[in-house]
Each structure stands twice: as C-alpha cells, then as structure tokens.
Amino acid sequence: MDERSIGHFEFPILGRAYFLGGRASTSVKKALREAGVDDDTVQRVAVACYEAEMNVVLHARSGYVSVDVYPSRVDVAISDRGPGIADVTKAMTPGWSSASDEARALGFGAGMGLPNIKQQSDLMSLESEPGQGVVLRLTFYRGGGNGAGS
C-alpha cells in the first residue's frame, strides 16, 4: 500500500436526483479509461461505483466519489452525508433493502447493491455513523483481481 498515486479524481453525487444517477460513475469510467486502466478493471469499478452512487442518490443528501489510481490497483471511496446505515450486516444481506416504493418502481431497491459491490471489488470496507453518513472504501487490483466480468 506504499505505492504512489498516479491519478486522482473526484466527482460529486447529488442525493435524490434519480435522473442524474450514474453521472459520477460515468465520469469515473471515462477517467480510468483515459488513465490507461485495463478494461476488466474499469468494468468492475464502473459497476461497483454505480451501485454505490445510487445508494447515495436513493438514501443520502449528497456525497462524492474519490478515485486513486496506482500502478497495481485502483482505490475508490464513496462518502455521503445522510442517515447512515443502522445495521451494516442487514444491509449486506442480498434482497434486503430500505428503498422507497418510488425507487422500487424504477427498478432500484432489489437489495443487490452492496452484495454486487462486494462481488466486484477485491477489498471492501463500510463505515457508517448513524445520522451522519457512510464511507465506503473499495480496492480493485488491476489486471486480475477477482476476475468478475470476464
């Protein structure tokens, strides 16, 4: 973990702005491609980032995604200001969701977001301060990793 970051990007995420959802993740995908990261890693980051971004859109007031590119890995942190997660274990359970009926009607809230993120990433840590927000930290090893998407 003592490598030097060779690229750093940050993009904002607006809570409740359903129809802007995916903008930050799309920017991350483009930035990683331009940084020369391999397709498989870019794909895994894009999928995980989107799920995390939609969690912010659906549940929080605002947030941002921060990305650091290293020679051997990509680190992503998604931080938000919002209600936080009261029970992280429950939130990680496939099928469990606290999304609104409105969100579910749009095809969100399947309870697959955090499990998807865990599957796509190589390392995942979730810190939550109820009433304050959530910080989700992800690591993706470049050119190999968990092989998801291949």
């Binding site: 359903y18 959802g21 995916g22 999928v47």
Partner: peptide, 12 residues
C-alpha cells in the same frame, strides 16, 4: 427512465 441508459453505458 434515463437511468437505464446509465446502466447500459456502465455495463458496456
């Protein structure tokens, strides 16, 4: 809705 396009783009 527009989010379908974001999903399609991100999942290539």
């Amino acid at each position: 809705h527009a989010n379908t396009v974001a999903v399609a783009a991100l999942a290539s």
